[in-house]
């Protein structure tokens, strides 16, 4: 009797472990930080060109879409995604704000002259601490913001599908 219960139990555990591992296999093992950060953080940062201090509450207005893009001139994928930012900047419902990450002014300026400047504002993050306020783990990283909420978070470079998706989300709300 005791043996039967034991064998039944162990087979039950076995099945449970199997299904869990099986389910675990289906999930991707690439970690993406959870969207625990729904609201945008409050911060004050220096602007890139004027070197003026600016507060987050002065940047974001309700009823407008913002695309926050963390970039650096030394980051190769940023170069690749830049064309999508430039084309997205033509949408006048969307304001693109750059956060220049651990960069030096000259290189960043050259980067913008070479590839175009899609940003309506550029903020400077000299030591990478502001990116952490946003919950970012590296460059490039992009956030779609609407009414002080983060609608979408993209880790890594934009591509044409992602750019289209952003375009669609913005246009739907009109």
């Amino acid at each position: 009797m005791k043996n039967k219960i034991l064998s039944f139990l162990s087979i039950l555990i076995l099945i449970f472990v199997f299904t869990t591992f099986y389910k675990g296999l289906e999930k991707s093992n690439i970690y993406e930080p959870q969207n625990s950060l729904k609201k945008i953080p409050e911060f004050s940062m220096m602007t890139f060109f004027e070197s003026k201090e600016i507060y987050s509450k002065d940047i974001f207005r309700d009823n407008d879409f913002y695309l926050i893009n963390i970039w650096a001139s030394w980051c190769v994928p940023c170069r690749d995604e830049h064309q999508f930012l430039v084309s997205l900047s033509k949408n006048n419902r969307l304001e693109i704000i750059g956060i220049n990450y651990k960069d030096n002014y000259k290189n960043a300026e050259r980067f913008l002259i070479e590839l175009g400047n899609p940003y309506s504002k550029i903020l400077v993050d000299k030591d990478g601490t502001k990116a952490i306020e946003w919950g970012a783990i590296g460059v490039p990283e992009t956030f779609l913001v609407y009414e002080n909420k983060i609608l979408k978070k993209i880790i890594g470079p934009l591509n044409s599908e992602l750019a289209e998706e952003i375009e669609r989300i913005v246009n739907e709300k009109i």
């Binding site: 970690y31 930080p33 651990k102 030591d127 990478g128 601490t129 990116a131 783990i137």
Partner: peptide, 21 residues
Amino acid sequence: LICQGQSVFDSDSDFANSLKI
């Protein structure tokens, strides 16, 4: 978060350095 099995203390990546600050 961007390293493989390293703590922020032990890492010298950009992310870890910023996090230390």
